[in-house]
Design a protein around this nucleic acid. Structure first.
Lengths: 192, 192
DNA sequence: ACCTGAACACCGTTCAAGT
DNA sequence: ACCTGAACACCGTTCAAGT
């Protein structure tokens, strides 16, 4: 329950609070990040929180930046590792569709875009991913402008997909139907 | 400033509070709906709020349902009024892209999907709009399954589009570039 | 029927004091 | 260096009393 992987230290670091905050975000959303709840979960009083951070906002900021640096980077690295450029795009679609854990924080942040601190982080992350798509479509043979617009459309489809599928559970879809949808996306969006 | 269109009545109705809440949602997001702020704006004490609503949540609920009934319906009606079925889809894309006011509340709610009350409302509205797209694609000649998947993809693109363009202002796009993007969407998603 | 004003709970924040 | 405990501000909620 309150067991950290750090052999039950009695003192906490700022990183401990940030990790706890990120877990809360993934599980219950940005709104669930509350000083009192976190303190209770970590087994200290809320007063101690203010030794590590100036405000609740500062914690959120630090947690988001931590995610941007560590969690985020690996998604792009993993995909850039796909050797054949022509297979990159379809492979990317299939991976995102089937390994959704790395996208949980991203999906949670997508639902919390009314928190002003979330917006710039998501803008940077989205920007980077879209540039990646732009490059991938160029390598797949689309001319510059076409490739950029296709990247925009694809990214919009990705964002909308996370929302429709997880939050707005549009009439629950079967496993086969889901796979068919993914292949439809690939056929429609990726040049032959 | 505090002038309502109701000839400066001294007493308020539940609907007055709901309208004020909806305006707040469109302008500043769901998080901005606060009892004290609303009361100030309407020129009463917050105590009076509780004659009309049991809780803040009840106000939000009522406001969302009001939007679902009135504001929402007219978007679909307007589009169903387009005579030629083959022109409906491209026309729909262009209208959504250029007349965005009716989509402001929808976009605000999209950013607030971590508020549990928002989710079912958005699920219902999205469901209805997707059914409309499904029908439109069937009328445009796609077979059933294909039409459904294309409707899903299109709706995801719509949702993602609102998010990318308004919230995550991906590098500010020019007017011409924007129109080119819309035409790219039409070419890619709508069967010839 | 609609509103005031005072009270309380909850949570973010401060700070003097502890180890 | 990290934490406690008491205090305060802010906002949602209650309620007896006013018109």
């Amino acid at each position: 329950m309150n067991a950290s992987n750090k052999t039950e230290r009695s003192r906490l670091s700022a990183e401990d609070w940030e990790d706890a905050a990120l877990n809360l975000i993934a599980d219950q959303g940005v709104g669930a990040v509350a000083v009192e709840a976190l303190a209770r979960q970590l087994g200290v009083t809320k007063g101690s929180f203010y030794w590590h951070f100036r405000t609740r906002e500062a914690l959120l900021q630090a947690a988001l930046e931590r995610w941007e640096q560590y969690g985020e980077r690996e998604v792009i690295n993993q995909i850039e590792a796909i050797p054949n450029p022509r297979e990159r795009l379809p492979e990317l679609f299939r991976r995102v569709a089937h390994e959704l854990k790395p996208h949980r924080v991203y999906a949670a942040l997508l639902k919390a875009l009314d928190h002003p601190q979330v917006v710039p982080v998501m803008a940077r992350v989205s920007q980077r991913r879209m540039e990646f798509l732009h490059t991938a479509y160029t390598q797949a043979g689309l001319p510059q402008t076409e490739a950029l617009n296709r990247a925009r459309l694809t990214y919009a489809a990705y964002v909308g997909f996370l929302q429709l599928n997880f939050t707005l559970g549009l009439p629950r879809i079967s496993h086969e139907e889901f796979d068919a949808y993914v292949e439809h996306m690939i056929r429609t969006l990726i040049p032959a």
